[in-house]
Design a protein around this nucleic acid. Structure first.
Length: 262
DNA sequence: ATGACTGGAGTTTCCAGA
């Protein structure tokens, strides 16, 4: 079973790259963020053998799951946040296949640091933990994939001294993310690559950042314990980031043993 | 040379991204 998460930075611009990724990488689930559109027409993906689940808005945000398997109990937004903020409905979509729950998540960017938006970002992450507590236990099979807009550790940014206190690497953001993980989630990339530096999923469009590998690891596939035990490999798809007209994020790919009924 | 990017909205320049 293969899961890919990718912040596409505009569905319209990246549509062909998305189709190529489905064909070449053949995932069971492709989680998308920043579709920036209200609607995604499912026809092209049906032809490739994928169901489309999308929650988006005009011009920004937007999350989707392209799935080989029909999802039941599709959830959009979550209680405790979307009453206060309609945008939360464009930031999380999930569904169930057999006893597996899978979510595509786009955490707010939060810039600038210490603005209202920054604290909304922090609150979003804590509310996400409350959402998990309310609906699941850490023994359930759950995959949370997406753009979390937080680099968890100093190893996850190109220059921790330079970036300390900046958005996406601020102490408060990292603490919130740690609290989320402590509910019972495992960072799949670090299970397979515990010590490696310089593994990133986002590079600025400016400053030839990709070529110089000046990036951050902001996109994650987090899973509960039962899935961590059947994890096979995790890697960043650098080839897609190196294409002409790329997203500023690269796809992150996690492979698992096929799940069995239990 | 002291810059340098991309996408969307919507009309010529601003906002957001991270």
């Amino acid at each position: 079973m293969r899961v890919i998460t990718w912040n596409v930075n505009s569905y319209n611009i990246r549509k062909l790259q998305i189709e190529n990724l489905l064909v070449e990488k053949n995932p069971d689930f492709l989680l998308l963020q920043e579709t920036k559109v209200e609607r995604i027409s499912p026809e092209a993906f049906i032809k490739l053998g994928f169901y489309t689940y999308h929650a988006g808005g005009r011009g920004r945000n937007g999350v989707a799951i392209l799935s080989k398997h029909a999802l039941d109990d599709v959830k959009i937004g979550f209680q405790g946040l979307d009453e206060e903020d309609p945008q939360a409905r464009e930031r999380i979509i999930g569904g169930r296949w057999k006893d597996l729950w899978i979510f595509s998540i786009y955490v707010p960017n939060g810039s600038p640091v210490n603005s209202d938006y920054f604290f909304y970002k922090i609150q979003f992450i804590y509310k996400l933990r409350e959402f998990l507590e309310r609906h699941f236990t850490s023994q359930d099979r759950i995959i949370l994939g997406g753009d979390f807009n937080v680099a968890p550790e100093p190893e996850d940014v190109f220059d921790p001294q330079l970036l300390e206190g900046q958005v996406c690497f601020h102490e408060r953001e990292r603490k919130a993310l740690k609290t989320l993980l402590q509910w019972g989630l495992f960072d799949t990339l670090r299970i397979k690559h515990p010590e490696k530096r310089g593994i990133f999923t986002w590079w600025d469009y400016q400053f030839s950042a990709f070529k110089r590998n000046l990036g951050m690891r902001l996109d994650h596939i987090f899973v509960t314990y039962p899935l961590s035990k059947i994890l096979l490999e995790v890697k960043v798809d650098l080839k897609t980031r190196a294409l002409p007209k790329p997203s500023d994020h690269a796809p992150l790919i996690a492979d698992f043993e096929d799940i069995t009924d239990r």
